[in-house]
């Protein structure tokens, strides 16, 4: 449904989006991740035709967004960043306007507004002015606007921003449900949302795609993936670490905590472990007792950090140098 081909956007000297290519099919929910300023919103604005691309093309449902903007936009529902809405209108008036400009007749509008109001739980504020709404309601009002015409394609820029945990949950459920029949792309920097709602995720950094895959695939990129955390008693830390490192499947082991009652350690596998690490550790347990043992799944936030901040280590080094300069 959405095809983004070699898309680039240059603002002055700054490359906001640097030749990215991806596509989203019907039935997919694509999570769009990246640090602030990575180019997420710019990409979404180009997909919806708000800003023209500097290079490359976007097609939505087969219509090029630049050459056939009206046909393409008809298929899209868009929730811009910060969920803007006309503050001088009531919620009902605003949704009715959104339906009318999408070309719906009187009866269709009524049905569409009712449906959107129900899906977004806007009943209590229906005749309130948008200006007086709390942030959560305002956000959902704009969200309701984006689904008013039951579009095939949904582009949502931070749809859960500013919502309370319950509302976040509802919106994720909604996205997930709607994702079965639509092509959805949504941006976020809350990583748990990727697990909760996405069938696939893209991480972009400085305008480039740095990772693309299902949440599981991304998680496997973590160096934690397949790592084993264990707590044992009857042995001291140094000996344990020494023994663990001698196992052929172990890359390295770190002692996290050493107490009188036991030692907690984390063991990282060689070549991703294949899930055998835990059993080989259990087999090697002689002279000490395993109190607890489990395999880590890999963590998205760690993958996210390691991908989007590869030079963290270098920067840390610099930061350490600076105080020395001050002292001297």
């Amino acid at each position: 449904m959405i095809k983004v081909n070699n898309l680039a956007k240059v603002f002055g000297a700054k490359r906001a989006v640097d030749h990215i290519t991806f596509s989203v099919e019907r039935g997919e929910v694509l999570g769009f991740l990246g640090p602030n300023g990575a180019g997420k919103s710019t990409t979404m604005r180009m997909i919806t035709g708000f800003i023209p691309p500097s290079e490359g093309s976007v097609s939505v449902g087969g219509f090029d967004i630049v050459a056939q903007p009206i046909q393409a936009r008809r298929l899209i529902g868009y929730l811009p960043e910060n969920a803007p809405a006309y503050t001088d209108m009531t919620v009902y008036g605003f949704l009715n306007f959104a339906a009318e400009i999408r070309g719906m007749g009187r009866d269709a509008r009524k049905k569409a507004v009712n449906r959107a109001v129900e899906l977004c739980f806007l009943e209590p504020v229906l005749h309130q002015s948008v200006e007086t709404l709390s942030k959560g309601y305002r956000h959902r009002t704009c969200f309701a606007q984006s689904i008013i015409h039951d579009p095939d394609v949904l582009v949502l820029d931070e749809p859960t921003d500013g919502l309370d945990p319950n509302q976040k949950h509802e919106v994720r459920q909604l996205i997930r449900r709607m994702g079965e029949k639509k092509a959805i792309i949504f941006s976020t920097h809350i990583l748990e949302e990727v697990d909760a709602a996405c069938s696939r995720a893209i991480i972009i950094d400085r305008g480039r795609i740095v990772a693309n895959g299902t949440p599981e695939e991304l998680r496997r990129k973590s160096e934690w993936a397949g790592a084993v955390t264990l707590r044992v008693s009857g042995i001291n830390g140094a000996t344990l670490s020494d023994k663990l490192c001698r196992l052929s499947s172990v890359k390295r082991a770190t002692i996290l905590k050493e107490e009188a009652t036991g030692v907690t350690a984390r063991v990282f596998p060689r070549n991703n472990g294949n899930g055998l690490l835990a059993s080989s550790i259990a087999d090697a347990a002689q002279g000490w007792r395993i109190e607890e043992l489990h395999t880590e799944e890999g963590r998205l936030d760690e993958v996210f950090r390691s991908i989007t901040m590869p030079d963290t280590a270098a920067q840390n080094g610099k930061e350490e140098e600076q105080p020395k300069e001050l002292n001297s």
Binding site: P80, I101, G103
Partner: peptide
């Protein structure tokens, strides 16, 4: 951003 991404 809403207005100019509507099908008009």
């Amino acid at each position: 951003e809403l207005l100019l991404t509507m099908p008009i």
